[in-house]
Design a binder for these strands. Sequence first.
DNA 1: ATATATATATGCTAATAGGATATATGTCAA
DNA 2: TTGACATATATCCTATTAGCATATATATAT
Lengths: 124, 124
Amino acid sequence: MNQIKKKRHPLQGKQERYIQPSILLGLYGKPSYGYELIQNIQKFGFLKGQAPPGMIYRHLRQIEEDGLVLSEWDTEGTGPARRVYNITPEGEEMLAIWVEYMETQSKNLSSFIKQYKQRLKESG
Amino acid sequence: MNQIKKKRHPLQGKQERYIQPSILLGLYGKPSYGYELIQNIQKFGFLKGQAPPGMIYRHLRQIEEDGLVLSEWDTEGTGPARRVYNITPEGEEMLAIWVEYMETQSKNLSSFIKQYKQRLKESG
DNA sequence: ATATATATATGCTAATAGGATATATGTCAA
DNA sequence: TTGACATATATCCTATTAGCATATATATAT
């Protein structure tokens, strides 16, 4: 009966998974659709395993509502119809903002790790 | 009436703020207490401005329940009594796990940024 | 006396994630 | 030709977390 504890475990809980910028970068330069993005987005490494479909589709509809992407049905080709997304100029701006933020995070993380190792050495 | 939109804005919404590892590193090698940690934790750069007190105290009690820290009241000295926290061995282990995770995130972020800049150059 | 800094704590609401599940279409093999 | 499977999108419910306000109390400075 330690599921309760496990649920509270920080590294099993909510982590920054960068789903929105991953979707935007996945669409940058090349239109795509939910199912394909699910396969591609995990390559960025922020998700362990496959991206949960429900969340990807929710994100896609949300960012379309926010004007970051535009979709249209693609009934051509094989298989079920696909809702194909294109990034908008607003979406590209948002991606740039995300990248700025990620650069800051990356620097903060490096600095944090450095400080940790310093203190580890001192106490070791 | 665009508060609704603003609330949904990703970079104004939930970001990874690394409060738990920041508290743990803040206690690593040196006991401290809530009010002091609030001042110190912002130096890591993950929070814009001051850390929200309510969240810090909630985190502290949570991680004590999880066995990562131990507290005792310090009624000596000036001002109101302080609940002084010490990190436990379990807390140090958890911090090490956090740092591992943060190293991974840092690498993923660098890689993401690199891919973004590559595609920007191609389309530019 | 009273305003301010120090110090901890709780309550309420909104946002997000997790996970299951529903629905539908086309392909392929027995 | 039917049943299994891959493709593809979408929604529902609950648990977790964040955001923010506020309560409470003590010491210090004016």
